[in-house]
């Protein structure tokens, strides 16, 4: 589900003033549990999800799980 591109890297965590780094993150929906690499703040752990990812691959997986 890794759909993050270079342009996403321009975001920084406002509170921690940290650049984001690609890390393994747990995501879950209905019966599905996955681990995927996403950009996140290494200090406060806030995870970044871009629009392309949310409305692309992520939505596809959501729909897939809903029809399981």
């Amino acid at each position: 589900m890794n759909g993050q591109s270079d342009k996403d890297i321009t975001w920084v965590c406002h509170k921690c003033n940290q650049n984001l780094a690609l890390k393994k993150v747990k995501v879950r929906y209905l019966e599905g549990n996955f681990e995927v690499e996403l950009m996140k703040c290494t200090k406060c752990n806030m995870v970044y999800i871009g629009e392309d990812l949310a409305l692309g691959k992520m939505l596809e997986v959501e729909k897939g799980l809903e029809d399981k």
Partner: peptide
């Protein structure tokens, strides 16, 4: 649902630039 809002601030004015959402839950730990 997780809602995402991209916005710009100017004094008290907050202008929305984009919005999207997803249902998948991200575990922030």
């Amino acid at each position: 649902v997780t809602y995402w809002v991209q916005f710009e601030e100017k004094d008290k004015d907050v202008t929305v630039k984009s919005v999207y959402s997803h249902r998948m839950e991200i575990v922030e730990e």
